[in-house]
Design a binder for these strands. Structure first.
Lengths: 147, 147
DNA sequence: CTCAGTGCAAAGGATTTGCATGCCG
DNA sequence: CGGCATGCAAATCCTTTGCACTGAG
């Protein structure tokens, strides 16, 4: 999704919650877009130092509420944020157990479909209403292996 | 795994780290074993009030370090703990987006194998060393649907 | 002008740690 | 006996909140 579409989409989502798409919110969204994976607060602030920590926290909460951003927590003590799935592509996470960084990856459509079906079956059996799934691969990233 | 095997296994793991399998550590392990899913600190303390909060935190850290316990974080602000995978069966988590509770579930062996293979392929392509994977199903549990 | 959005600093809450005591080996 | 494990309470650190200020409409 190119910037313009993305901005329009996010603006729309925010309007639905009577929120404006302000400059700093736009900045946060753009940082997330260019991340290549979910980012921590530290990473976001480092990427754009015109942003104030408390405002970023507040804006991320608002963006999450509007459905534009998803907050995830992995092994370490920092929450990470990424653009909501419908603003990107369905993907999964590769978590480095050494440095803690998180990268995106995707499965072939065929595999993904098979997985969906298997999960639906399980959920049906347990009486669960499925809202989505997340699949994390835990391992050591390239950088940490060479280091 | 029955209690005796489990205790022996955990004791062994702790010995490997020069740690004792004390009474309160044993209590924590047994609470986790009967959980049916990963438990929060609150749930653990509620299950056995002879346990002191700080000691449970400390013991869980030690047990995790010894490879007997795994710490996971979901959507809410509480960490959850479960017995390490090699002490139980490979399984996945069903997270209720309403009450936050987490339950275990398993996939058919065939599905699990296919998934493993797909993940291995992806990891190889990205130069990652795989240590494991986790699959969470997000939805609404039976209790929350009727409520 | 008005009111949502912002930034600073102070508060909040799950988790961790210092220290004196108790208990296992 | 000696040292690790425990429990209490105080400290930590990410995150949230109170409040006064700023800027868009």
């Amino acid at each position: 999704m190119v910037d313009l579409e993305l901005d329009a989409e996010v603006a729309e989502l925010l309007r639905g919650k009577d929120q404006r798409y302000t400059t700093s919110r736009r900045r946060v969204v753009h940082v997330l877009q260019s991340g290549g994976g979910p980012l921590t607060m530290m990473q976001i602030l480092a990427e754009d130092d015109s942003l104030a920590q408390s405002s970023v926290y507040r804006n991320l909460t608002i963006l999450e509420d509007a459905g534009a951003v998803t907050r995830i927590v992995t092994r370490d003590d920092f929450a990470r944020y990424e653009l909501a799935e419908h603003l990107t592509e369905h993907h999964h996470h590769l978590i480095c157990s050494s440095c803690g960084d998180v990268l995106d990856f995707s499965l072939e459509a065929k595999t993904e479909t098979a997985l969906d079906k298997a999960l639906d079956d399980v959920a049906k059996k347990l009486g669960f209403t499925v809202e989505g799934h997340s699949l994390d691969l835990l391992g050591v990233c390239v950088d940490c292996q060479t280091a």
